[in-house]
């Protein structure tokens, strides 16, 4: 690397003469070595999935989760250094909690992404710290209904000022990806980690921007993409970890949860069949089942 020996890579808060922060770039390298994580924003929910590389047969299956819940309606998946990810999640939970203290409402996914973006960016500013060695995918569902504020005990006026307007809807799915620099964007489909290139290529084929993909289809696609992105040559074993969050009238009732065992097994079965067979032919069959 060109930076080595120049001295500009030894500290945060120091730019190289051509305007780069090498510490951030090194952090990105850490992410690129981590297991793949993806997120899909469907019309009625969000799916998160990670390729959890099994580093030892002595590890308990299903332990050491890499997707965590924040508040009730948000999930965070991450690729990179796991301890950094744990700290990131912990901070996100604190942000969600302090938002509730202030506003007596769950934090919107966009606001959580914004606050976490600021938090991550602050770790690029000081020479006493290093940047986060993770890229995090934040997916959640903002309630489409007018939720009662925390602690509300009455129903309030039925009509007039302060009354509810029937049939109004807001909220919906939210998906954001935060990089070690603190940069974040909202996405239809997000991918990071080792297999991100392959995953992105698959995500682009899904025409997510049209908002037509259903959550159940999204779950199966996510499982398939994780399998596609997995590189059998470098890593043999991996576990598929998958969560989802649906609308209030959907399967998770607006909560972020792990995909039920039955559905997970089915999605993984289809993904494996896809991998074994002729990819183009199998894809149609997958969509139907």
């Amino acid at each position: 690397m060109t930076s080595i020996g120049t001295g500009y890579d030894l500290s945060n808060s120091v730019f190289s003469p051509d305007g780069r922060n090498f510490q951030v770039e090194y952090a990105t390298k850490a992410v690129e070595n981590g297991g793949t994580s993806i997120g899909i924003r469907c019309k009625d929910g969000v799916v998160l999935a990670v390729e959890k590389l099994v580093t030892s047969k002595l590890l308990k299956p299903g332990a050491n989760k890499r997707i965590a819940t924040v508040d009730r309606n948000v999930g965070i998946a991450f690729s990179g250094l796991i301890p950094d990810g744990r700290h990131f999640v912990s901070r996100a939970r604190d942000e969600a909690s302090s938002w509730r203290d202030t506003y007596k409402q769950p934090i919107p996914v966009s606001s959580l992404a914004d606050r976490m973006g600021s938090y991550v960016q602050a770790y690029t500013l000081y020479n006493s710290v290093r940047p986060f060695g993770i890229t995090a995918i934040i997916g959640g569902w903002d309630s489409e209904q007018d939720l009662p504020v925390d602690g509300q005990v009455g129903s309030g006026p039925k009509t007039g000022t302060g009354g509810k307007v029937a049939g109004t809807k807001s909220g919906g799915p939210g998906l954001y990806m935060i990089e070690p620099s603190g940069l974040y964007w909202g996405y239809y489909g997000a991918a990071t980690g080792k297999g991100r290139q392959a995953a992105k290529a698959e995500l682009e084929k899904l025409d997510l921007a049209s908002g037509s993909l259903s959550l159940h289809e999204g779950v199966k696609e996510a499982a398939r993409i994780i399998h596609v992105a997995h590189d059998d040559n470098k890593d043999k074993e991996f576990e598929l970890e998958m969560t989802w969050v649906s609308s209030l009238d959907g399967p998770t009732k607006g909560r972020h949860e792990f995909v039920p065992e039955k559905l997970l097994v089915e999605a993984e079965r289809l993904a494996k069949r896809y991998m074994e067979g002729d990819e183009d032919e199998e894809e149609d069959e997958n969509m139907e089942s």
Binding site: K65, R72, A96, S97, R100, K104, D150, G151, Q152, V153
Partner: peptide
């Protein structure tokens, strides 16, 4: 007191959220 009741309701809501973070 109703406002204290609302406060209790909120700390229990927070407790429920935190409890659900566990597996």
């Amino acid at each position: 007191d109703v406002s204290d009741m609302q406060y209790i309701s909120r700390i229990l809501n927070e407790l429920d959220i935190d409890e659900n973070y566990g597996s």
